[in-house]
Nucleic acid binder design. Structure first.
Lengths: 150, 150
DNA sequence: TATTGTTATACTCTATAACTATA
DNA sequence: TATAGTTATAGAGTATAACAATA
């Protein structure tokens, strides 16, 4: 989980200030988004359901790598989904160390139900912005996602 | 900590999809940023130190409101800083229910030291972007901060 | 009674270390 | 030995509920 560094001295002050501003804004908004708990699955669980729904069958390692979390952390989230009946575990026929994870029909239903409720607060806020502002946020989201990958 | 809703039916699908994308990108980046732990104060603690440094003396309520967290939550963070000697508590002379919180000299030193290390990973990523991309992220951060306030 | 802060408690998410089973 | 996954344990950060002190 560690990332190579760049010597601090080579980074201009205005970039450090932007980093500061972004970090705080992201932490705040994350807090806000986590606070929206309409009774469905948790945010981490919903994210896994959406991945399995959109990209099909995945192994635990694939999920952990995609979401940038540790294997035990992802294992915990997946186990909770299995207990709830939203994800099924199937041993891989070709390599019995590997477990294939699939979303169930109940999981698909729950994902759709929870997604709309969980994103509703944010969506309502986005609706108050202009089209171009929304487009900017979309590009920002892509940039953030792209930055994580080294 | 609850926010008024907009009926789900009035929200266009593309806005819900953007909300989804943003929520996941923010959660991921938040995880990434939290993982950068160079041994200084924690992210929540650093944020409080920066507020006290930049905006001066604050009450617990003011800090909690500004960062959009509950009073007990902010109290915990502040207490940790007090124990470490980075923040001082002074009873307000005019209203003895109120406690004024100030950053100490040690706190200022620690904030500066930790800030650069903690933001270093993100700053290095930002450095790989173009000026206009950085400007976009800056505006995105402002939008995110603005959206939290109702 | 209302406000400010605090304490008690619980839950989510995350990590590292140690372990098991399979290759 | 190396890899995929799991279990055990710990810590950060957050919340709600109940309480104390002061206005």
């Amino acid at each position: 989980m560690s990332i190579p560094d760049t010597p601090a001295s080579t980074i201009p002050e205005d970039v450090v200030l932007l980093a500061d501003q972004l970090r705080i804004a992201i932490a705040r908004m994350n807090r806000r988004l986590r606070a929206q708990t309409p009774g469905g699955v948790t945010p981490a669980q919903l994210t896994v359901l959406l991945i399995l729904d959109r990209h099909g069958e995945q192994t635990l390692s694939q999920l952990a790598e995609r979401e940038l979390v540790s294997l035990p952390s992802m294992n915990r989230t997946v186990s909770q989904l299995v207990v709830q009946g939203f994800v099924s575990r199937t041993p891989s026929p070709s390599d019995r160390r590997v477990t294939l994870l699939q979303i169930t029909d109940a999981g698909r239903l729950e994902a759709e139900r929870t997604r709309r409720h969980r994103d509703q607060w944010l969506a309502a806020r986005l609706l108050e912005l202009s089209d171009s502002e929304r487009a900017q946020l979309g590009r920002a989201a892509e940039m953030l996602n792209g930055m994580g990958c080294r």
